[in-house]
Simulated scan of single mutants.
Amino acid sequence: MEVEDLYIVQTLTENADFLEQLGTKEKFWFRDLLSKNNQRTLFKYSRPNTGEHWSEKCAEQLCLLLGLPHVNYDIAIHNGRYGVTSPNIVDKNEHLVMGNELLHRDDPDEYPRPVDFYDNKQKVTSHTVTRVLAFLELSAVLPPKSDFDLHGLGAAEVFVVI
């Protein structure tokens, strides 16, 4: 049985509102005309022969079954290539601050500037899970707004779950 037999696979014809530069995967934002309020949505291409699209959907479904906070994924095809779509989870009145920006502000001598981080990902040895979790534990970063019960969870706990 193929994943296409279990879930609707949307064929996207939308053009990119803008390309997303963060991360290693090719992706873009678009306005989903089928959603309420034409919600801004991310399409992330799967790398060929990796199953990244169905593995993201599997992880989402496991989180759903376990009652864990998660983003919603739908499998889609754009220009003949598989990927996943995910709605923007950042409230329009909020600003997303990337973790590497916070780590640089916290320790500019040890951690590279964000622009250097994106240009030289392979050289950044100070970007570790331990460092990120320690920063989240000690900072005043709040968990995002969510439909899930995050009462009593700090930013580090939410980061680990999501």
Rank of each mutant, 00 (worst) to 15 (best):
E2T: 13
V3A: 12
E4Y: 11
D5V: 09
I8N: 11
I8A: 14
E14W: 05
Q21R: 13
L22P: 01
G23I: 04
T24L: 09
K25W: 01
K27W: 09
F30Q: 03
F30S: 01
F30H: 01
R31S: 10
D32S: 05
L34T: 15
Q39D: 08
R40Y: 01
R47Y: 03
R47K: 13
P48A: 09
T50R: 02
T50A: 02
T50S: 11
H53N: 11
E56D: 15
K57G: 02
K57F: 06
C58F: 14
L65Q: 13
G67V: 09
D74I: 01
D74K: 12
I77P: 00
R81S: 12
Y82I: 02
V90Y: 01
K92D: 14
M98R: 14
G99N: 10
G99C: 12
D106P: 01
D106G: 03
D109Y: 03
Y111M: 07
Y111S: 00
P112D: 05
P112M: 03
R113T: 14
R113H: 15
D119I: 04
V124T: 09
V124N: 07
T125I: 04
H127R: 12
H127P: 00
R131T: 10
L133A: 07
L136W: 10
A140F: 06
K145N: 07
S146M: 01
F148C: 00
L150H: 04
L150I: 12
V158Y: 05
V161H: 11
